[in-house]
Nucleic acid binder design. Sequence first.
DNA 1: CGTAGTCTTGACAAATATCAAGGCCCGTGG
DNA 2: CCACGGGCCTTGATATTTGTCAAGACTACG
Lengths: 230, 230
Amino acid sequence: MPRKAAWCDLSDCFACTIRDSALFSGLREADLAVVHGAIEEIPLRPGHWLYRGGQSADSVFTVRGGLVKLVQYLPNGDHRIVRIARSSDVLGLEATLRQPYQHDAIVVQAGLACRIPIEVLDELNARNPALHQELMRRWQSALSEAEAWLTELSTGSARHRVIRLVLRLSDEQGRGSAPLFSRKDMGAMLGVTTESASRAVAELKRAGLLGEDARGFWCDREALAQRVTD
Amino acid sequence: MPRKAAWCDLSDCFACTIRDSALFSGLREADLAVVHGAIEEIPLRPGHWLYRGGQSADSVFTVRGGLVKLVQYLPNGDHRIVRIARSSDVLGLEATLRQPYQHDAIVVQAGLACRIPIEVLDELNARNPALHQELMRRWQSALSEAEAWLTELSTGSARHRVIRLVLRLSDEQGRGSAPLFSRKDMGAMLGVTTESASRAVAELKRAGLLGEDARGFWCDREALAQRVTD
DNA sequence: CGTAGTCTTGACAAATATCAAGGCCCGTGG
DNA sequence: CCACGGGCCTTGATATTTGTCAAGACTACG
């Protein structure tokens, strides 16, 4: 019997592919019942907004696949990408504090997200203290990420920043594959121009340390780690 | 009857000068009793460490006066200041998650802090849900600050960054007075060299938009806001 | 007094931004 | 089907900014 595709009901949440790493991983079955029928699945289409900065925020989102960039703007029109959300990351936590969304959340790579109304989160929060801890961990993880972007991705030469970005995005094990980003987005993450990002990437490619195909980047992590020290 | 100066007991917490804005502002008197005798007052001496990155973290700190910089280091020896804590700010929240401290916390301007052992925080947390909310707010505020440093203080020319830094540090009302920072620290906040920070500050001084005396900076906020747009 | 550290300034080198052009891919509409 | 336009990436030439190195002034401190 087919279910409505746009909704994730109780059994779907139990079967969630990222259940172990999800926000609700610590919840008991009885708690999950609260969620029944309240969580909407959102297809992530590249270029579309998941939400926009300044909007009143009534939901938190869990990314279950794909990539979302969080963008902030300066009064003069400049912008910076301040975070990248991937599978199992949580977006829009500021909603739980009744604050408006702080960023534009824009899809970079197609995937799927779940929309969790804050009332549901509040309800679960009241029942289950494990969720507190998990929420705190999410905040901390976002903060730690933001600070790493300051120290690693906004410091040093453009080449060093690009290297650190690739290292940060790529798998630690395996042959270091990383998702694909446009040079424009790389520039916005690193605080350099598109051209500088392009030149740095081209240089690494010529040196054989980095490659790119339709699926994404690959890199020689060890060799790159070597080059970021000097 | 004098009390031991190094300790802040119950009555001191009630009389705390930052009680309204402190972490414990939402607590009832009965809750505060838990705190009795467990909170240590720490004098903040410029150049000294409040804690160091990597240390196992057993306490959270509340700043009650003075300034503390949070510093992170890159493997190559470079460093960035990723946050500035002032009166009523909370430091070392990662301790509540049993994580080691993420920064070196170094005093910039003399003042006073309170050391709160995590056991105390846990105890209060179990009793009083208002504290959850307050902790979340603290995480969010730190995150939001970090992201602002990315977009405002790590983007654009050195002059623009200095202007945004001064605007961010200075009082919104009044004649825009801001605490004093060394050029070296300004550089480490902005991701530019000491010399670049110095030149930018000197230029703003010559233009009459910024001044400096023993107490700190002062500035013409409106004129500066004008110059940061172009 | 020296000494060490910071701030400032200058001269120069290096990195980056800016402007411009060409190639490539892809979707659209004639 | 093909021509066209719009993005995006790349590369080059040039201007601007920033980093680097060095020196002198000044302050704080023993």
